[in-house]
Write a protein that binds this DNA or RNA. Structure first.
Lengths: 155, 155
DNA sequence: CTCAGTTTCATGCAATTGCATTGACATTAA
DNA sequence: TTAATGTCAATGCAATTGCATGAAACTGAG
């Protein structure tokens, strides 16, 4: 019986997690795209590369930060490189690898996207929740999601 | 200033929502696939069609239930039909539409998937949370996600 | 050193998704 | 009825994703 009750609650969380995610992501992506800006993953890459005034990262590191599959990241970087937003540099100590760096255009793009992104988040993520609820929700979600990154999210 | 604090909390929720979703969905899908079972969306369709001892639904209705784009559902049903799990019937009152129905194999498949699915949920969704936390989380997520369906989730 | 095993990144190919459009029917207004 | 408009579902095509594999370079045991 106790088991029964738990699995029901777990299901509730599962269903709502998926719906909440779909709902929020769809809206935010649509809002950002509506302004003619690139998709969110591009922003995420650019943000990682723009931290601390611009840093170089190995694809492997980006992979872990962004939770993207290796082959997807490889091609994502192809596209961003083709768009002139990032560069692939040879990696000093490791002949297999590379260092990814945002170009000036890339950093500019990150700055350009941020306001729209920020507004979209503000408008579409949990518009009905109080700050207390937001904190509580972030805490509970943190217990589900893997590890977290320390740094902030925006400019 | 108050604005500043809110947007930060919103960002926290955004980041963690995405990570939690990725984390959980990836694990559950992997677990189900590892048993040689079809993807979760197939289960969702079959479950909808199996409710109340088997019902017929229009694609439009499934679309809304499952939050799938029209063209994706169309092709998802192609695949499931090809696999012999659902049938497309002509729709009585509406010449444009159709009624989707699970075949006996489809209903059997739903029943066959459920235990694995259930176990995967139990194992990978919020394994560390108390029942109280689960309730709280479901409630908060409910405030974010759109509408909800009344019915249960399983067999 | 050398070779097996591992890590990093790329890529061919099939499956899926997104976007735009079409075709068929339904509904409404006149 | 007819024409205009709206809704339901399918599809061609391009973009993206997933999977399996490959090539190059590192690592470490012997």
């Amino acid at each position: 019986m106790a088991e029964e009750k738990r699995i029901e609650k777990v299901q509730h969380v599962w269903v709502r997690l998926i719906r909440a995610h779909d709902n929020v992501v769809r809206k935010v992506e649509a809002a950002v795209k509506a302004k003619g800006l690139p998709p969110i993953e591009w922003y995420d890459v650019l943000l990682e590369l723009s931290r601390d005034g611009g840093r170089k990262l190995r694809p492997v590191e980006l992979e872990k930060e962004l939770l993207v599959a290796q082959y997807n990241l490889s091609r994502l970087l192809d596209r961003m490189e083709a768009a002139g937003l990032v560069e692939r540099l040879t990696c000093p100590g490791d002949g297999r690898g590379q260092m990814i760096q945002a170009t000036p255009e890339g950093r500019a793009m990150q700055k350009r996207i941020w306001p729209s992104y920020r507004d979209a988040l503000e408008e579409h993520v949990a518009p009905g929740l109080s700050e207390k609820d937001l904190e509580q929700l972030a805490k509970l979600l943190g217990a589900i999601g893997g590890h977290l990154r320390p740094g902030g999210c925006g400019n």
